[in-house]
Design a protein around this nucleic acid. Structure first.
Length: 215
DNA sequence: ACATTAAGTGATT
DNA sequence: AATCACTTAATGT
């Protein structure tokens, strides 16, 4: 089958840690290759998760929403990442607390939850993989949290831009000040002013709908 | 040329 | 740092 071959190749390329041949086969066997276009919502608040995604290409924006409907950007998932949130959600069969939207055109392997659990006990490298992504995401989250709590907006902005650029694999970010403000839960004016300042300092170059990271 | 949307600015709280 | 009230600039029709 073509899809199986594709998955097998993708696993070997992007997830070399999962080295056990039997595991690779099973992933190819039970995983579904899914494609999303930029802007597609993969998962919204309140929806049940039936699959754990393993990103092959593209990137996904993960965000949270508060009671008043303000959105807050949490982190990006890039190729080689999984959604740690989905592990716990799946296992507990809970509703999603987060929203995930494809940032670029994205392809991923969807693993049905039953196997995620089963493989944990059967494959060492899978278990390690799950634990590792938990650890990684935890660190990132903690970092994001104390950014919000302790750091000033300009640092948050810079960080956001760097991550976004990393996710897009480009120094050029196509985004309006409004959208950025929305992600950071700030006002558009604040973002505009900070960007202006950063431009004066020479760290970015601004254009309409476009920000270029210079450093 | 005109309308629309993005970005910049100063004042106010 | 948020909000308001504009202004200015870029783009689409």
């Amino acid at each position: 089958m073509k899809e199986k071959e594709e998955i097998l190749q993708a696993i070997r390329r992007k997830y070399p840690q999962l080295s056990e041949p039997r595991l690779q086969e099973e992933i190819a066997e039970h995983g579904k290759l899914l494609h999303f276009n930029a802007g597609d919502t993969l998962m919204d608040f309140g929806s049940y998760i039936r699959m754990v995604p393993m990103i092959i290409e593209g990137s996904i924006k993960v965000s949270r929403e508060d009671e008043d409907g303000n959105e807050l950007f949490l982190y990006y998932l890039n190729a080689g990442d999984t959604c740690s949130m989905s592990f716990s959600c799946c296992m507990m069969n809970k509703k999603s607390d987060i929203r995930t939207v494809a940032e670029d055109d994205t392809t991923l392997i969807g693993i049905p939850i039953q196997y995620v659990d089963e493989w944990m006990s059967r494959f060492k490298s899978w278990q390690q993989f799950v634990m590792q992504s938990y650890d990684l995401r935890m660190r990132e989250l903690v970092q994001t949290i104390d950014e919000i709590a302790f750091k000033r907006m300009d640092e948050r902005l810079m960080n956001y831009l760097e991550k976004k650029s990393e996710a897009a694999q480009s120094k050029v970010i196509n985004s309006t000040h409004q959208q950025i403000a929305f992600d950071l839960n700030a006002s558009r004016e604040a973002v505009s002013r900070l960007l202006k300042q950063m431009e004066k300092e020479g760290s970015v170059q601004l254009g309409r709908n476009k920000i270029t990271l210079l450093d």
